[in-house]
Design a protein around this nucleic acid. Structure first.
Lengths: 194, 194
DNA sequence: AGTTCATTCTAGCAGCGCTAGACGCTCTAG
DNA sequence: CTAGAGCGTCTAGCGCTGCTAGAATGAACT
């Protein structure tokens, strides 16, 4: 059965190759440039091969986005754990989030802007999405009120997302992003206990 | 010359007809359904007529968005002026903004989500856009610090935009939108002086 | 070595935004 | 009142998109 195994292994590699190629092409030229023909050419197979791995273009974007959530969760985690006070952790996480959005706009777009493709607040929400959200909850709380679980995180996240996409779309000047984060952190930092 | 005048008048009417038809079609079936063929059919002209009025599909979307800004500015203004205290005005404006986004999602999308099509913070920013932004500045200030002009408004606007689009994209549950607004208002209300 | 079967490719469909060039109608000037 | 100029509209078509049916290929198993 080793022949079959080898083929499955090759298949898995090609699966990942498609995802990576799609992400790289999107990051280099934007999602508009990611057509099935160009993507197929890039992985050096014909178009129909893509459809033997993914149900359609949407599914490819979904796979790219899912990997993105793992990256984002890791970066937010690293940033917040490097600080001691909660306020510093909040600012560090916010900065990590905005940097991620600014530095990898195409990936961010697949995750948070394109027509929904991943189930967010639902029973079958992928663990990477839950992990990313949990990172935000960890820095803004609340930690003592079950009823409000997630509310602060949602609003803080919403604010970060809002200014990230408005800046990216040139609807807001990019230069004051640091000041905006400072203001946001000041307003959302938990009551000082340190 | 009245014949020429009549023709120009008819042309202006048709211009508006195209914009209205595009908005209605988008609001009914989403922007994906707004193809030049379907739009032409709806206004009962052939495709090329659209291009004698607008440079391309982008320009039509731009015209729709521009009208939207006038509506939004008017609704925010009406909402904030109906309240006395600044905190109530802030909440009312926020609610008006979120309601606008929720009730007219396609129009909102053209204004704030689609690839930039109107110059926002620039010298030739249309007055409707300036007016809408000025409404937000009016309720969040600051009014005494030239250097910070617009910063509070940008962050408050960003937060409203963020939760609006995340809810619309099913990335955040819709049911707690009121609680989110309350939290946001509490954090952004100017120091109590009333 | 012959057969089976999975896999990949060629070719094509319907629809997209957009445009060139032919056609027809209206308005103007003599 | 008629002839002609010019504007406006339409038909037809280009190159592209996501996606797929069916032919052709090649590797693996008996």
């Amino acid at each position: 059965m080793s022949a079959t195994e080898r083929r499955e292994r090759e298949r898995a590699q090609r699966h990942q190759l498609i995802i990576t190629a799609a992400r790289e092409l999107a990051e280099a030229e934007g999602w508009d440039a990611v057509t099935t023909r160009r993507l197929a050419e890039r992985v050096e197979y014909s178009q129909p091969v893509l459809y033997s791995h993914f149900k359609g273009k949407d599914a490819i974007i979904r796979a790219v986005a899912l990997e993105g959530f793992e990256d984002l969760a890791a970066e937010m985690r690293r940033a917040r754990l490097a600080e001691i006070s909660r306020k510093d952790a909040l600012r560090a996480l916010g900065r990590a989030y905005l940097d991620f959005a600014a530095n990898r706009p195409a990936l961010y777009e697949a995750m948070f802007v394109m027509p929904t493709v991943l189930p967010f607040a639902s029973d079958d929400t992928p663990s990477a999405l839950r992990a990313a959200f949990a990172e935000i909850v960890a820095v803004v709380g609340p930690h003592d009120d079950e009823e409000l679980y997630g509310l602060y995180a949602e609003v803080f996240w919403g604010a970060l997302h809002g200014i990230a996409v408005l800046v990216h779309g040139s609807r807001m000047p990019a230069q004051y992003q640091g000041d905006r984060l400072d203001l946001l952190v000041e307003r959302f930092a938990p009551p000082e206990t340190d």
